[in-house]
Structure formats: C-alpha cells, structure tokens
C-alpha cells in the first residue's frame, strides 16, 4: 500500500478538498482558486479521483448524537472465517450498522468482525445485536458501549507533521 502514485497537483487538490466543503454557488471554482487552478481542471481531477475511488464520497455526515442516536456501541464478533463475507454482507445491510470491518485477532482477543451500531437506547441496541446474532447464528460477541468521545476528527492528508514530506 505504500507505493501509491499521486501527482503533486492531485495532492494540492486533496489538501484543499479536505477542508469543509464551501457552501457557495461554485464551490469547486472557490477551491481551485486557492491553488491557482482553473475550475475545469479542478473538476476533472476530482472526477478522476472519484473514479479511482480515492474519494469515497463528497457529502454530509449528520450529527448523530444530536439526531437522537444516544446508544452507540462497537460490537466485536467472532465469525467462522469461511462465513466472514456472507455474514459481513448481511450485517452491512442493517440500517443501524454504520461501519462493518473485518480485523485480525490477537492472542487475548478472538474477535474478527466489527460493527458500529447506532440506536436510541441501550435496550434497542441490544435488541438489534441479539437479532443479528440469531440471524447469523453467532454466539461469541462483545458489546463495547461508547462512554466518552475523546476525539473524532477527519484525517488531514499530505500535511507536514506526519513524517511525510510535501512534494519534492
């Protein structure tokens, strides 16, 4: 994964895109002007980055704690490896599941699938998890309720202080 080729111009586009999206008539023109690029070129590069799936999405993330989702849990599951894809696909389809990743296990931690579950109460959260467990025939899992959010930020890519130099 370390040999990803991104041109210096694309890195500049990424650097300005990672700020809040401007709420104005021509947001790409506004961003392009910051790096002395034409709006047309900027839009072409953004389209290309999207096609290459380097950009996952441009859009909004709602403030879900404010949206009434107060019981949020990371649920760690043990899934038989040969059933991982099948079960992960099933869990991903559940509307209360916002994230679903596989992970390696550790000697003292035998869980290999992780789902973030968002619910309006702990009772509802447990109901969802028990239903998923029954549906997928799983009996080894841990519900890890979020008790405090210490940090939640967006990554800053291609900036100076991460042991990565800017473009040579």
């Amino acid at each position: 994964m370390s040999s990803v080729d991104i041109s210096p111009r694309d890195k500049e586009v990424i650097r300005v895109l990672q700020d809040d999206f401007p709420l104005c008539e021509q947001p790409f023109k506004f961003l392009a002007a910051q790096i002395d690029m034409s709006e047309e070129e900027f839009i072409e590069r953004v389209k290309k980055l999207s096609e290459q799936k380097k950009i996952r999405k441009m859009g909004a993330v709602l403030q879900h704690r404010n949206a009434g989702f107060t019981a949020n849990a990371l649920c760690a599951w043990y899934v038989p490896p040969e059933r991982l894809d099948e079960i992960a696909d099933k869990m991903s389809k559940h509307p209360a599941v916002s994230h679903c990743y596989d992970r390696n296990t550790a000697p003292n931690w035998n869980y290999n699938l992780y789902t973030m579950i968002h619910a309006k109460s702990r009772a509802e959260c447990e109901q969802i998890i028990n239903a998923l467990a029954a549906d997928c025939r799983l009996d080894q899992f841990q519900i890890l309720y979020t008790t405090r959010e210490w940090k939640k930020t967006s990554m800053r890519y291609f900036v100076d202080n991460q042991g990565e130099s800017r473009d040579q």
Partner: peptide, 15 residues
C-alpha cells in the same frame, strides 16, 4: 445538524 460537509477519502488508496 451536520457534523461535516466535506470530502471523504479512501486512506489506503492515498497510501
């Protein structure tokens, strides 16, 4: 109501 309006990148694909 909005946590963020912005661009979300695939970190692996950015290296």
């Amino acid at each position: 109501c909005l946590r963020r309006i912005g661009t979300f990148f695939d970190s692996n694909r950015l290296g």
